[in-house]
Computed example of a mutant assay.
Amino acid sequence: MKKLEFLLADESATVTMGNHIAQALLHHNKPLSQQAFVAYLNGDLGAGKTTLTRGVVRGLGHQGNVKSPTYTLVEPYELSPYRVYHFDLYRLADPEELEFMGIRDYFNGQCVCFIEWPEKGNGLLASADVIINMAYQDEQRVITLHACTELGESVLAKLASENGS
């Protein structure tokens, strides 16, 4: 399973897709004890990257607000069994800023990282397990998920089986 594509009718459907991704992370065949799960999120402003991540974070058990880390660069969520980090690198002026914040420490086992605007951290980020592209299609969104690693393939296979793809 290298690629999946879904049509998302609205914001609610985007959050629901995030919930499905969370369930796939929780129930896929490979534990995240030795490595992080890393997803790169691509898409124009307003395409739904933060909304999708909100669905993932809530699907993994977070009860509170899920806000965009546009100004803080990263929002951490201590959940069980994973620590979830939502990065938004849109306002990153220099990739070296990531070194100063200890970026490599975020990519350890038991971590799930969703990174918006990953090209801004080129060369300093862990490789993606899944690349998620979100695009407008009329009033809806199209989400395409590409697996880049065995871990990514495992998660997409679980997502496909749960969604009848």
Results as ranks from 00 to 15, higher is better:
N29L: 10
L45D: 11
V57N: 02
N65V: 14
G48H: 05
D105M: 03
Y82R: 11
T51I: 06
H27E: 12
A47K: 02
V38E: 01
F37W: 06
G46P: 14
E99F: 06
R104H: 15
Y106I: 03
L60A: 08
K49E: 03
T51F: 03
E99Q: 12
L32F: 07
T53R: 02
L41Q: 02
Y71T: 08
Y40L: 09
G102H: 10
N29P: 12
Q63L: 14
L52T: 04
Y82Q: 08
R58H: 15
G102W: 01
G48A: 08
V74H: 03
F100Q: 08
P69H: 02
G48N: 06
Q34Y: 06
T72R: 04
L98F: 06
A47T: 07
R58D: 03
S33P: 01
N65M: 13
L60K: 05
T70P: 07
V38L: 04
K49W: 02
G43N: 07
G55M: 14
D88Q: 13
P81C: 15
M101E: 05
E78F: 12
V38W: 00
P81I: 07
Y82N: 02
R91P: 03
V66P: 04
L41Y: 00
V84W: 01
D94H: 12
L45T: 09
F107Y: 15
G59S: 14
G55I: 11
